[in-house]
Design a protein around this nucleic acid. Sequence first.
DNA 1: ATAATTTTTTAGACCAGTCTAAACTTTATA
DNA 2: TATAAAGTTTAGACTGGTCTAAAAAATTAT
Lengths: 219, 219
Amino acid sequence: MLSLTEENYLKAIYHLSDGGTKSVLTNEVADAMSTKPASVTDMVKKLSAKKLITYEKYYGVTITKQGKTDALTIIRKHRLWETFLVQTLNFHWDQVHEVAEQLEHIQSPLLIEKLDEFLNFPIADPHGHPIPDKSGKIHTGQQVPLCDIAAKKTVTVLAVNVKESSSFLQYLSKIGVYIGARLAILDKAEFDGSIEIMIDGKKKVFVSKEASQNILVTP
Amino acid sequence: MLSLTEENYLKAIYHLSDGGTKSVLTNEVADAMSTKPASVTDMVKKLSAKKLITYEKYYGVTITKQGKTDALTIIRKHRLWETFLVQTLNFHWDQVHEVAEQLEHIQSPLLIEKLDEFLNFPIADPHGHPIPDKSGKIHTGQQVPLCDIAAKKTVTVLAVNVKESSSFLQYLSKIGVYIGARLAILDKAEFDGSIEIMIDGKKKVFVSKEASQNILVTP
DNA sequence: ATAATTTTTTAGACCAGTCTAAACTTTATA
DNA sequence: TATAAAGTTTAGACTGGTCTAAAAAATTAT
Ligand SMILES: [Mn+2]
Ligand SMILES: [Mn+2]
Ligand SMILES: [Mn+2]
Ligand SMILES: [Mn+2]
């Protein structure tokens, strides 16, 4: 049984390690968690005592098999709750993250099973992020940033990179981009990387390179 | 902003004081919270510093106007979540309390408003307990224990007294008692207070005095 | 290769919440 | 009304999570 704080650290380490594929440094965790390095050192000792990560002094931490499993359970809960909030309670996609940060810590396997069933076993959350299934498996198709798509091609929006800022999501809603939208790349400006796109064959807009890097689409 | 622990103490004090109508002793709180009296003394000092209760050394605590409001908000959330779990996710009424104990602490006024709306503004939870409205108002009709009903009368089940034990709820389900059931009192045994009842005109069962004291019905 | 800089860890402190043991106040009993 | 019993508070300690300041290790620059 993990404390709320331990769960949050473990999840942060999972994300920072790209799903357990690379090791993570103390300062990275401190940044991500908005705590001080000294606090991270204390916590990684605890998590490593619980065999959820391996900790090598001065060289950072690596997530273990068990740690990955536990992290995926938390992520699964987070994304199922976000899906519930949008699909069932009609939240906007920029309103759900904070609440899901709380809901993800509710301890009740039965609740998550029933929620999953009620939502009809969704495979992606409102931001297009994959929802791990009960066994922790993630099935994602290929996703590429919009900035990498050649001119004249038409693609479908699969997901958005959303760190902490809901303002990016609000911006996307405003210009008409949503998960599932069809985007035709009309023109690409070489000098600043900005792109002109047509959304659903109806609306023509410009997006900056910054934005197009964070919109993930079909290859 | 109250901590999870402060919320739990405040709710316990509200319930022990019968909705703020009487004062509550240290040991009663300690019993209800499964903590030691010394811990209660510490906490009531904190809650009284926050003006949620008034604390008179050696004579117990009384809940304030603000304390009542805050307690009712928590109770509202608890009961809305229990309603959600039963109505929407098909939990049994004996499975919801523990989960609602966690969910009641989620901080998001918007979530509660939307949940309330989604559930169509229910006025009672799965155990028949009234759900305070957004302003904290409770509207309950008159409820009397089944043991006080005269023989030959027929009544409707309005609520059940459920402390911590889900076993009483399981027992009620087993014999066929539920919120809304019609009970005809066939016979009352004077010597032990047990009652013979007919449920929905179909099933004849005996219930002990103990049980009949905890089934609340129309007068 | 040594020095300067950055990163990380340790040491010691603090807060919230809990406990036990001892002191104190109130209530019950004789 | 004095004494015993019960209830309550205080004092001091502990855990989990956090911090700052100082020490130690690793990295980078000279
Ligand atoms: Mn999120
Ligand atoms: Mn979290
Ligand atoms: Mn309950
Ligand atoms: Mn609670």
